[in-house]
Amino acid sequence: TIDEIIKALEQAVKDNKPIQVGNYTVTSADEAEKLAKKLKKEY
């Protein structure tokens, strides 16, 4: 679900690790936030 994706992003940001979500690779908190907002609009 979208919530699980967002939790995974938040965890990756805390661990400061890049995370791959679908076609996106998120490497920073800023990118994670942008991706989360984008995904919320889509779903």
Rank of each mutant, 00 (worst) to 15 (best):
32 A>P: 00
41 K>S: 13
9 L>H: 00
31 E>C: 10
9 L>I: 07
12 A>Y: 14
21 V>I: 15
10 E>L: 14
11 Q>W: 06
41 K>G: 10
17 K>I: 11
15 D>Q: 08
29 A>M: 07
22 G>V: 02
35 L>S: 00
4 E>R: 07
39 L>A: 00
38 K>Q: 11
15 D>C: 12
29 A>T: 06
12 A>Q: 02
10 E>F: 14
10 E>P: 00
9 L>Q: 01
8 A>E: 05
3 D>Y: 15
31 E>K: 01
1 T>Q: 08
11 Q>C: 04
43 Y>N: 10
31 E>Y: 03
21 V>K: 00
19 I>V: 13
24 Y>W: 11
28 S>F: 03
28 S>L: 02
37 K>I: 13
11 Q>S: 07
40 K>R: 15
15 D>Y: 13
31 E>G: 02
27 T>N: 14
36 A>N: 01
37 K>L: 14
6 I>Y: 02
37 K>E: 12
28 S>A: 03
6 I>G: 00
5 I>L: 10
4 E>T: 07
26 V>H: 01
20 Q>D: 05
3 D>T: 09
8 A>F: 06
2 I>L: 11
38 K>P: 01
17 K>W: 15
37 K>Y: 08
40 K>M: 13
28 S>E: 03
9 L>K: 00
25 T>A: 08
9 L>D: 02
22 G>K: 03
22 G>M: 07
37 K>D: 11
42 E>K: 14
37 K>R: 14
10 E>C: 14
35 L>Y: 04
39 L>P: 01
1 T>V: 06
34 K>N: 08
29 A>I: 08
28 S>V: 03
3 D>K: 11
40 K>T: 07
14 K>T: 07
33 E>C: 14
28 S>D: 10
3 D>H: 11
5 I>C: 07
20 Q>E: 08
14 K>E: 05
22 G>H: 07
6 I>C: 07
26 V>D: 01
1 T>N: 09
25 T>V: 13
30 D>I: 12
41 K>N: 12
25 T>P: 03
36 A>D: 00
28 S>R: 01
2 I>K: 02
41 K>T: 12
17 K>M: 14
19 I>R: 04
17 K>L: 13
6 I>T: 02
40 K>I: 13
6 I>D: 00
24 Y>R: 05
1 T>A: 09
18 P>E: 04
27 T>G: 10
29 A>D: 04
40 K>E: 04
14 K>W: 12
42 E>A: 11
8 A>R: 10
16 N>E: 05
22 G>L: 09
34 K>D: 09
22 G>S: 04
7 K>W: 14
20 Q>H: 10
22 G>D: 05
10 E>H: 06
13 V>E: 02
13 V>R: 06
9 L>F: 02
14 K>C: 11
32 A>C: 03
13 V>D: 01
23 N>V: 10
11 Q>F: 06
13 V>N: 03
42 E>V: 12
33 E>D: 10
37 K>N: 13
16 N>P: 03
32 A>I: 06
18 P>Q: 05
33 E>V: 09
8 A>V: 08
8 A>W: 12
6 I>K: 01
18 P>V: 07
31 E>I: 04
20 Q>P: 02
11 Q>P: 01
33 E>I: 14
43 Y>S: 08
15 D>W: 11
26 V>F: 06
18 P>Y: 05
33 E>K: 12
19 I>Y: 06
20 Q>Y: 05
16 N>A: 07
29 A>S: 10
5 I>H: 02
5 I>E: 02
24 Y>D: 02
12 A>V: 11
3 D>N: 09
36 A>G: 02
18 P>T: 06
21 V>M: 05
29 A>F: 05
3 D>M: 14
